[in-house]
Write a protein that binds this DNA or RNA. Structure first.
Length: 683
DNA sequence: GCAAGGTC
């Protein structure tokens, strides 16, 4: 008997061969693809790993011409399956010819079932099989694998069909609306405007936040702080009223303040800060962005590379709970060989009992991301090193003891007003030793007790502005997408990358471009279903129904097609307005305001100095001679955003400068504006 | 040149 086992990827093919053969297997190459070979009793077994999906869905060639086909026609068009990679398919078929029994051992989830189904269908086209069976397992452990192959099941057809429904619905909606929007706004070729079940709600989320920021009207407020000292040690306290919206009130208080303050209350308390949970993809991407300053797409690319080199475990994972089978001591013992980690490992091992943290998401797909080997000396550089270090440190942090801190709160009376001071001190470093990235600086209060007198050294009167909600960082966005059920662990970073490539978003934290705003507006107004995450959650429900045979694939896809038809009906006669919306958006990009000559002021980058400034669109008049020489300098760092406002003093446009990690900053563009002299005087 | 989902 010749048995062929097909898996989703090479790594699992090898692992399965290893487990079923008790380590005694050979490797051969078929068209350069590894095939793992062993014997069991009278059975000859080959294991081959695919590379994910082997087929993808598409429309037949006549539908490929965007100009000649009305997008509406795509809704009911035939859908064909085409090979993703001819070589993989060829290698599979060669093995199929050899075998007389087939076992599908792809991942046990919807997409895995579909990959297995496609593989089995392709195999059946080569020859008839005595049997096609399915091994179901949810982890690549010896127990699970051996059990699964002892209890072979039938393929789970309805689960595969649910996967097909997902593919077809995504294609039909994506292609129809992408083409419609692109044609309507005449954005063709590489400038096409994409629409999709996951990317579009994500864009709308960002656009809504952008709108809130744009519409936000900042209010001035003042803070009153005192620098105090006790026995020469300085500390800062805030007035109990944290924000004053009327500065005359602060002036009054300032006059009352004396040179001494009385301690009314002083409290010190201790608390523990628990170590972080193990890394799943989302948590990892968030940390890579916040700590290593890498985009999710870049971080994922590096993680995949480290995984392929055997240095970290599988990076595409939802699970945040280590399996019982993970040997912590073994990992710690190789980490200990790195001088940078030696002390940390010692601290972990010195605990009476090592208890790893657990996250909220518990599944058995893969273990959370952890280091699997120490990289050879100097083999990693730059970003690779950062990512490995992050994974190693996070792993060690999850096994480390809690951090112990001390909080101090003091209430001090000065001139009849109450001021509050807060102190913070780390008592035991705990997991900070492994993972120091978010360690707060110690800001201890001096030793104080009720009734003590302290000296007032300085009165600080600070003017501030209320802040709009923050922009999403890539890290926050990945987390938000996970929370809303948008995309998967393997696709979220790519979807965000896509939005960047389409020109819908830019920068970090993420800013929605004018084009992105225009597209989002069109989506929310005329393509409602794809503008919200509900389409995905509904699709998930319906796919469960297909898998459980409560609905047929045809029913679900058919219903989805009807809905799309009604969306397209609503778009009839909207082509012109869509085109105008998009056109206006593109024109508005970089626009700062009106020039006194009637021209438009926009951000221009000097060809010579590569520096940016604000220039007028009438710099050259059509006759090529006369010109408007109005220009304003700009700070060279940060994003420049139009506020639509003009300065009350000089009439020049007011812009917002958004600098990473600084608070947004509104300025009048005119460097000689009288308002600036006024401010100098105020200080 | 369309989507989203696997994997490299």
């Amino acid at each position: 008997m010749r048995t062929l086992i097909v898996t989703e990827k090479d790594k699992s093919a090898r692992r399965i061969a290893e487990i079923l053969s008790n380590g005694k297997f050979g490797t051969k190459k078929v068209l350069n693809f590894p095939v793992y070979v062993f014997r069991k009793d009278s059975q000859e077994i080959h294991v081959i790993g695919l590379k994910g999906h082997i087929l993808r869905v598409d429309f037949p060639p006549p539908y490929q011409n965007w100009q000649k086909v009305d997008p509406k026609e795509l809704i009911d068009a035939e859908i064909i399956k085409v090979p993703v990679n001819e070589l993989v398919l060829k290698a599979l078929k060669e093995e199929v010819v050899w075998a007389d029994e087939l076992i599908v051992a792809t991942d046990f989830d919807r997409e895995g079932e579909l990959i297995g189904y496609d593989a089995a269908e392709e195999a059946k086209r080569v020859k008839a099989f005595r049997s096609i069976k399915r091994a179901r397992f949810s982890a690549l452990t010896p127990q699970e694998i051996k059990e699964a192959f002892k209890n072979l099941q039938d393929p789970y057809l309805s689960l595969a069909l649910a996967g097909e429904a997902r593919q077809e619905i995504d294609l039909v909606w994506g292609a129809t609306l992408t083409r419609f929007l692109s044609l309507a706004s005449r954005r063709l070729g590489k400038h096409f405007l994409s629409v999709g079940r996951v990317q579009s709600p994500t864009l709308c989320l960002l656009a809504q936040r952008e709108k809130e920021i744009r519409d936000f009207k900042p209010t001035d407020y003042w803070q009153l702080k005192l620098v105090l000292a006790k026995n020469g040690q300085q500390f800062v306290v805030n007035h109990e009223k944290e924000r004053f919206f009327d500065h005359t009130q602060v002036e009054k208080i300032k006059k009352k303040l004396g040179e001494k303050g009385l301690v009314l209350e002083y409290e010190v308390s201790q608390r523990n800060i628990l170590p972080p949970s193990p890394f799943n993809t989302t948590q990892f991407l968030a940390a890579a962005s916040n700590i290593a300053r890498l985009s999710p797409a870049r971080a994922m690319q590096i993680a995949e590379d480290l995984y392929m080199r055997g240095l970290i475990s599988y990076p595409r994972v939802d699970n945040t709970v280590y399996p019982a089978s993970l040997n912590f001591k073994a990992v710690l013992s190789f980490l200990k060989k790195d001088p940078a980690y030696e002390e940390v490992v010692q601290a972990i091992l010195s605990q009476e009992k090592i208890v790893p943290t657990r996250g909220k998401k518990h599944s058995t797909d893969h273990p959370p991301i952890y280091p699997t080997a120490l990289p050879p000396l100097d083999s990693l550089r730059g970003a690779e090193k950062k990512i490995y270090d992050l994974v190693a440190r996070r792993f060690m942090a999850t096994l480390s003891p809690s951090v112990e801190v001390e909080d101090g709160v003091v209430t001090i009376e000065v001139g009849g007003e109450k001021f509050i001071g807060k102190g913070f001190r780390v008592l035991k470093e705990g997991w900070y030793l492994a993972y120091p990235f978010f360690r707060r600086k110690d800001e201890p209060l001096p030793a104080l007790k009720k009734g003590d007198w302290v000296e007032v050294l300085e009165v600080r009167f600070e003017k501030k502005q209320t802040q709009p909600p923050p922009r999403y960082s890539s890290a926050r966005l990945v987390q938000e997408m996970e929370r809303l059920g948008l995309g998967t662990k393997s696709t979220r970073h790519q979807i965000i990358q896509n939005l960047f490539e389409r020109g819908y978003i830019k920068g970090e934290p993420i800013q929605t471009t004018e084009l992105g705003m225009a597209v989002a507006e069109a989506l929310m107004r005329h393509m409602k279903p794809v503008s919200s995450p509900e389409m995905t959650s509904q699709l998930e429900d319906e796919m469960t129904e297909i898998a459980e045979q409560q609905k047929s694939k045809e029913q679900v896809v058919g219903h989805s097609r009807q809905l799309l038809k009604s969306v397209m009906k609503g778009l009839e006669g909207e082509k012109e307005s869509l085109r105008e919306t998009v056109k206006a958006g593109i024109k508005a990009e970089g626009l700062i305001g009106k020039c006194s000559c009637g021209g438009e002021l926009r951000v221009v980058v000097s060809r010579k100095s590569k520096k940016r400034f604000v220039g007028c669109s009438n710099y050259f008049k059509p006759d090529g001679k006369q010109k408007c020489s109005v220009s304003y300098p700009l700070p060279q760092k940060g994003t420049v955003a139009s506020t639509g406002e003009i300065c009350a003093f000089c009439g020049a446009p007011v812009v917002k400068i958004i600098n990473q990690r600084k608070r947004p900053w509104q300025i009048c563009l005119n460097p000689d504006c009288p308002s600036k002299d006024f401010k100098k005087e105020e200080k």
